[in-house]
């Protein structure tokens, strides 16, 4: 079976003054459909950069990215926007919710971005119902009208998860989703992600430096010195 998502020879370096600092140096990765892959690595090893490249938030210096066997890294702006909007669901360490919008509106945002005013307004009932059921699913139906400022960290991350799922993505990219949460809350969020991965057969790439979290994944790879290696952690 072909992998759902793969990268070939992905490289990226940043400039520090005049000298290029390589971050990724030929990353090859294959993720199967429905797989939960954890990428571990030290801080600054380039985990987030890899995730941004896969999520088309950034452009690689060289290498290719394939989704369902089709190359996606060389797409034009509008098609990249569409993939970011509908195919990839992104979850960040710092939640990144829009402070002006309520929880429900934040969840609605990917759909509001996809749809023009006319189709949005004509479908608003069904869209809203969908977003409400997502909030229900992450256990926040009672927080719909609250703005991010009025939510706890765990609640914000749940909203962010609901938002990542709103546009019906097939791939979820989570960048340290529990990195800003206490251990209990982090575990809850992680369990939620795990459940969603199973329920919806979502392909998930989870970047973390916490090995205990990585242990919940189907497979763990380690990013070190710009390259990926399969890694089987030994859990104490």
């Amino acid at each position: 079976m072909d992998p759902h998502l793969s990268t070939v020879g992905l490289s990226k370096s940043y400039r520090k003054g005049r000298d290029p600092v390589p971050v990724l140096d030929g990353v090859d990765l294959e993720v199967d459909r429905g797989e939960l892959l954890a990428i571990v690595g030290a801080s600054g090893s380039g985990k987030s950069t890899l995730l941004h490249l896969i999520g088309l938030l950034d452009a690689a210096d060289s290498g290719r990215i394939f989704l369902d066997g089709r190359r996606i890294d060389d797409l034009t702006g509008r098609k990249r926007d569409a993939l970011r909007n509908g195919t990839f669901g992104l979850i960040f360490q710092f939640y990144h919710l829009l402070p002006e919008l309520s929880a429900l509106e934040n969840v609605l945002l990917p759909l509001a971005i996809r749809l023009g005013p006319l189709s949005y307004l004509s479908q608003r009932r069904s869209i809203r119902r969908e977003a409400e059921s997502l909030l229900d699913r992450v256990g926040l139906s009672h927080r719909r009208t609250h703005t991010p400022g009025e939510l706890s960290g765990g609640e914000m991350q749940r909203v962010a998860i609901a938002r990542a799922l709103a546009a019906g993505p097939s791939v979820v990219l989570a960048d340290e989703p529990t990195g800003n949460l206490d251990a209990n809350t982090g575990r809850e969020v992680l369990d939620l992600l795990r459940d969603l991965n199973r329920e919806r057969r979502l392909t998930m790439i989870l970047v973390t430096h916490d090995l205990a979290i990585a242990a919940k994944a189907d497979r763990v790879v380690r990013l070190a010195e710009g390259r990926l290696e399969e890694w089987s952690p030994v859990f104490a």
Binding site: G77, A82, N85, L98, P110, R114
Partner: peptide, 16 residues
């Protein structure tokens, strides 16, 4: 700035 980054991450276009 951060909100603009979020919007773009969620698929908002430059023109949007």
């Amino acid at each position: 700035t951060k909100d603009i980054g979020i919007l773009k991450a969620l698929g908002a276009s430059d023109s949007g």
